[in-house]
Simulated scan of single mutants.
Amino acid sequence: MDRHELRNVLLHTGLSPEAFELEGVHEHVPLPPDFWFLRRASDGRWEIGLYERGVHDVRETHDTEDAACRALHQALTGRPAPS
């Protein structure tokens, strides 16, 4: 799964577009006060976490975009990502 597929799946489940941000695919202007994010880390890995009050709180780091997308889907929906 990549960020484009994840965006489509999350929006299809009825999740608010303001609930998440996916680097380069689904970004906010202006920023909501809080949301989950997925972004590429400086070392090339992928980070997911929570943005609150101007601070990015990284909760997990993954080696692949697929693993990060699946982890973010689980965090936002409470269910495993579809295959």
Rank of each mutant, 00 (worst) to 15 (best):
M1W: 06
M1A: 12
D2R: 04
D2E: 09
R3C: 05
H4P: 00
H4G: 06
H4T: 11
R7W: 06
N8G: 10
N8K: 14
V9S: 12
V9H: 12
L11N: 02
H12R: 13
T13A: 05
G14C: 04
L15Y: 14
S16D: 15
S16L: 13
P17V: 05
E18H: 15
A19K: 09
E21R: 04
E21G: 01
L22W: 02
L22S: 02
G24V: 01
H26S: 05
H26D: 03
H26V: 02
E27D: 15
E27H: 07
E27F: 09
H28G: 10
V29L: 13
V29F: 15
V29G: 11
P30A: 11
P30V: 09
L31Q: 13
P32K: 08
P32C: 11
P32E: 13
P33C: 11
P33Q: 11
D34V: 00
D34C: 07
F35N: 05
F37K: 02
F37E: 07
L38P: 01
R39K: 12
R40W: 05
A41M: 05
A41G: 08
S42G: 10
D43L: 01
D43Y: 07
D43S: 08
G44V: 04
G44D: 12
G44I: 02
G44R: 06
R45K: 13
E47Q: 12
I48Y: 02
I48T: 06
I48M: 01
I48F: 04
G49M: 00
Y51R: 00
Y51N: 00
E52Y: 08
E52F: 09
R53I: 04
R53E: 13
G54R: 04
G54W: 09
V55L: 11
V55K: 08
H56K: 05
D57T: 12
D57V: 11
D57E: 15
V58T: 12
R59T: 11
R59D: 07
R59G: 03
E60H: 08
T61G: 03
H62D: 07
H62E: 11
H62S: 08
T64E: 08
E65Q: 15
D66H: 07
D66L: 06
A67D: 15
A67N: 07
A67V: 00
C69I: 06
C69S: 11
R70V: 02
A71T: 03
L72T: 00
L72V: 00
H73Y: 15
Q74P: 10
Q74I: 12
Q74H: 15
A75Q: 14
L76W: 12
L76R: 09
T77F: 06
T77K: 00
R79Q: 14
R79K: 14
P80W: 06
P80A: 14
A81S: 11
A81K: 00
P82V: 02
P82R: 07
P82L: 07
